[in-house]
Write a protein that binds this DNA or RNA. Structure first.
Lengths: 253, 253
DNA sequence: GAGTGGTCTAGACCACGGT
DNA sequence: CCGTGGTCTAGACCACTCG
């Protein structure tokens, strides 16, 4: 009996650290507060900085912390609920749909998108870039791929590029009768350009929402929207009023 | 002109490595194939193992690789589409809904769930555990929180716990008229128990799908489903037939 | 320029899966 | 047992932000 079984299954240091820090965040810190720097924290917990960083990465992934080079580590606010797919079947660009058109180009889409569009893989399409903001910061970037066949009456002359052209494409698109929508969500990592737009580093975790719009029995458009996974909780159906998860963890025996 | 601008914005080694490996996966490897071990790969690319690992972590996050301790790193199959929310408003447990009941306990839920249930924060509820498989492996674990008030006629005697009790709770739940559902998706990291069940390490990235079931104007149940983010693509609406993303990356102009 | 987080190194040892 | 990926260390330097 003399042997007190301290750690029969010793959990990794960084995981234990994550738990300790998480509880500290719940009880001793408030939103926006900056933590001590990494070297200081590492010393305080008696671990190498790399180990501490592993714990911080976890907490950042969970949306508890926000780290910025040259600035510091701050306590993140609870994730904001962003409504996606208001369930009424609507084209993108319909009045007040939270997105803002940025510009519009004409180029060959990535192979995966081309396949889904059932178009030739070397055929150029309209690519509308849009962005979405919430709580004053950009939370999502979207690329909307529209084959020329979906906007036959588009007059290519008056607005060769830019926001005006983007709006023109969306307007033409809305003339089609939308028959259905398929949507999927998966985890991804931000490419360099998305990362920059979302004010994150390349490789930052993002939620990729892919939507296929169906009209006249064919795929009329494909939307690939990239949401910051650290700050966003995607809500479906309606009302983003849910506030579950991400409190002090308690285990339900 | 003599100065060739090699790397005006030198990207990190691990990011470049990720790209190189990603292209190699596209062209030189097939699904299920095992890669050379990390020490070998690191040596081959002339980087430290930690740097190589950073690249591998990215690719694993993107669902391109699967790493298992004691075994090796293998090329992952494309993510499977898992239908979530068949859009017809149904209670969980309705005929063939892809979930399998595991057991049922009676305990106090985590604070965040208790708040959403609008019950007292120290009030015990039924907790049904269910699991979901796809392609022969477990892809999701669910905890369904059901307040006693939602299943008033439950006879607590004949099945005190286990799958039988779980089914009894679901059966009673289905007697209520379902008025609505709210759903949200966010990124999380697997807790120790979920990780074990999903055959991942603690902290592995997961997609947390939270559903609030509304009946008689109140919250009748809360479901928290945890999906493996590396292997799953959540599909909404219907048909998981979309195959976008995660091909050879090409930039759209 | 001072201070922050981000990247990278070259080691060591551990935990696990198969033999 | 060996080989694998997982954890951890103690450093170094870089890139960024801000006063």
């Amino acid at each position: 009996m003399g042997t007190t079984q301290l750690e029969s299954v010793p959990e990794p240091k960084y995981w234990h650290l994550r738990t300790v820090l998480s509880e500290a965040l719940d009880s001793e810190f408030s939103v926006g507060e900056v933590l001590p720097n990494e070297r200081e924290l590492a010393a305080r917990f008696g671990v190498a900085r790399a180990t501490l960083r592993q714990a911080l990465e976890q907490l950042e992934l969970e949306g508890r912390l926000q780290r910025r080079r040259g600035v510091g580590t701050t306590v993140a606010p609870p994730r904001m609920g962003v409504a996606v797919g208001t369930e009424q079947h609507d084209w993108p660009g319909t009045a007040g749909d939270a997105w803002q058109s940025v510009d519009c180009t004409h180029a060959v889409p990535p192979a995966a998108v081309a396949a889904a569009l059932e178009s030739g893989s070397e055929e150029a399409v309209h690519i509308v870039r849009r962005s979405r903001t919430g709580n004053g910061q950009q939370v999502a970037a979207e690329l909307l791929y529209v084959p020329a066949a979906s906007v036959p009456d588009l007059t290519a002359i008056d607005a060769p590029s830019g926001p005006a052209r983007a709006r023109a494409v969306l307007r033409e698109l809305q003339r089609l009768e939308l028959e259905g929508r398929e949507r999927s969500v998966e985890l991804g990592s931000a490419r360099a350009d998305d990362a920059k737009e979302l004010d994150r580093l390349p490789g930052a975790p993002v939620l990729v929402v892919t939507t296929r719009f169906v009209a006249r029995g064919r795929t009329a458009a494909i939307s690939v929207a990239t949401y910051r996974a650290d700050t966003c909780r995607l809500t479906f159906g309606d009302s983003g009023g849910m506030e579950i998860h991400h409190g002090p963890e308690r285990q339900a025996s």
